[in-house]
Structures are given as structure tokens and as C-alpha cells.
Amino acid sequence: MSRTRDPFYSSARKLRRAITLYDRLVDLDRVFRSNLSVNWQTIGPDGEGFYEHIRVPSKAIPEEIEDGMIDCIHNCRAVLDLLVYECGLLKGVSSRQLMFPVASSESALDEMFADKKRQLHRLGEKFQNIVRQQKPYAGGGNLIKDLHDLDIIGKHRTLVELAIITPATLGNMGVAILGARFLNQGLSPLEVAVPIPNRITSRLKSPAGSMGDIYRQMSDVHLLVFADDVPLAGRRVLWNLRSMIAQVDTVRNNVILTLS
């Protein structure tokens, strides 16, 4: 369908671009992790007899992966703003502030809909209901707020950094120390995978000895996650990007259906 006949051409094109970038990231991630290893560097002992064990990856995360990740996020977030703009054109609404609403709280989202300058109220009750169902605000438990925050960081503040984790299962001491939170979630601590810490302080010179009672099984699988100081910290990059794209696609389809 030509862009002159499809009123939602722009958002569709951005969505396709996000999917293309994601597919490229999957390939880059596979190549990067295919010969990646993580080794221990031991420092010490210090004056009190403690050793510092630090996990060091055999190679740095390629800039191409970090840049491709944030480009995917930018395009995915842009789908939502373009979708609202396209809806506005169909409804005869024109406003520079006509953007997909993402708020700091549920009450702040209500204020955005009530703000006459934003013109969101003119897009109709069905549109508002779809947005409200997504809970695009802090505490809403929805990836759209995380997508928005990552996009803001990547465009206006700093690079969105990634990290490498290595999952392992818990040993007996690990169950005693860390298992309670998994039991509260209805999970078996003996089966759940947790990331091995990147830094351990211990009186034992060997990092394996320092962790042997806590982690039962050391994994050779290394995963890319969001770094500690950004939204979704510690969570898998590709899994969450795929989920964001799927959610944005669902929102777009639902909005289009309300106008058909």
C-alpha cells in the first residue's frame, strides 16, 4: 500500500525499522557471545586478609551492539508518537504537543489527558482507554514507561550502557542466603538461575572456593543485560527489546482498529 493511501504509513515504517535493528542485534549478540569468556582477577590480600575477586570479560561489548540497541529503542518509541500524530490527522487535530502520553504516575496521566493544549482528549474515549490499559507511568509495571525512559536517556543524557552476567544455580548456602525471595515468588531456589556477582570479597584466595557453597553450578552461558544505573537494570536486553516491540505493535494495531 502506498504512503498516500495508508494514513499509518509512518508508524509502520518506524516499526519495521525497529524490527530490522532487533534482528541485526540478535546476529551481533550471537557472534559476540560465541567466543566470550569471563575470567576471575584476584587482588590481595589486604591488611585484614581479604581478597577481592573481580570478574573480567575476555572482550568489551562492541559499540555496534550498544549503538544498535539504542537505535532500536529510539525507533520503537517513535512508533507511538507517530501513531498519535497520525490519529490526530484523521481526527482533524493538529498540535506540536500531540504525543503518546507517558507519565510519572496515574494521576499525572489523567492530567495529560485533561490538558487542552495537548489535544489528547480530542482523539476519543476509545484511544484513551487503550492508553490507560497500558499503564504508561511509573509503577504501572509496563515496558512502555521503561522504553520511554531509556529513549530519553539515550537521546538527551548519556549512553545506555550494557553489562555481562553469567547465570548459575544456588547451592545449599545460596538457598539459605538468597532463597527466601524466590520462595515468596512461588519458585524453587534450587532451580532458579541467578547472576554470579561481578565482585566478591572473601578471605579465600580462590574465587571458586569463595562461591562454591553459594552457587551450585557455574554456567558457561553469558548474557547481555542493562547496566546497573539505567531502567531495567540487570534484565536481559534482547528479551526486553523483543517484548517492547511486540507491545508497541499491539498498541498500534488496537488504536488502528478503533478508527477502522
Rank of each mutant, 00 (worst) to 15 (best):
L82C: 04
W40R: 03
A108V: 12
F100S: 07
M69F: 07
E161R: 12
S107T: 14
Q133S: 15
D67R: 15
Y85V: 15
Q128Y: 02
D146Y: 02
T20G: 06
N39W: 00
D46A: 07
M112F: 04
Y51F: 13
E125S: 14
R157L: 10
K126W: 02
F113W: 11
L120G: 09
H121N: 11
A60N: 04
Y22I: 01
Q97Y: 10
R33C: 01
R30W: 07
N35P: 05
G92T: 10
P101I: 05
R122Y: 09
F113L: 10
L150K: 02
Q128E: 15
S94D: 06
G92S: 08
L25G: 06
L109M: 06
K116M: 08
K155R: 14
G154E: 09
I43D: 10
I70K: 03
M69E: 07
G154K: 01
Q134T: 15
K116D: 15
K155L: 02
F127I: 12
L28G: 01
H53W: 04
C87N: 10
R77I: 01
R77L: 00
Y22P: 00
I73F: 02
Q119N: 15
F50S: 03
L28K: 03
L83N: 05
K91T: 08
W40Y: 06
P136N: 10
F127W: 15
W40V: 04
K59P: 01
N142Y: 02
S58M: 02
A163N: 09
